[in-house]
Amino acid sequence: MSMTDVLAAADISKAVGAFEATDSFNHKKFFELCGLKSKSTDDVKKVFHILDQDRSGYIEEDELKMVLKGFTPNGRALSDKETKILLAAGDKDGDGKIGVDEFAALVAEC
């Protein structure tokens, strides 16, 4: 499954393009721009599984750093600061990673 099976390619491009500058990433605005905010919980979970590259059941810090590349190959890597902010926003149980339910909650709260 690819990201374009869940989200429109044009929306992904627009969202990734809006955050080309380093330290400009805002996950709330990103999830809204790419159309993920308006998707069903099932679709949000599909996106989670695409981003969970190692299939561990979690999105760890190294996968978060590459979150934009998970949406499109020409996305940039997040800075360390952006990655830490995103992890802090999504990691509700403090285990240093984001599980599927945490990810769904992160998208829903946007």
Rank of each mutant, 00 (worst) to 15 (best):
T41L: 07
K39S: 10
S38H: 09
K28L: 04
V16G: 11
S24C: 04
Q53M: 05
K29D: 10
A15F: 13
K45M: 07
E20S: 09
S40Y: 13
K39L: 08
F19V: 08
D52V: 01
L36F: 04
T41N: 13
K37E: 14
D23V: 08
D52T: 01
F31S: 14
V16P: 13
A21M: 15
K39A: 10
F48H: 09
L36V: 03
D43P: 00
H49P: 01
S38Q: 13
S38F: 08
F19I: 08
H49S: 12
H27M: 13
Q53R: 10
Q53A: 12
L36A: 11
D54P: 03
C34N: 09
N26H: 06
I50P: 11
G17T: 02
S40N: 14
E32Q: 14
G35C: 09
S40E: 15
V44H: 05
V47N: 08
K39W: 01
K37I: 06
K29S: 06
K29V: 08
I50H: 13
L51G: 03
F48I: 05
A15M: 09
F19Y: 10
L33C: 02
H49F: 07
V16N: 12
Q53L: 11
D23I: 06
K14I: 01
K46W: 02
S24D: 07
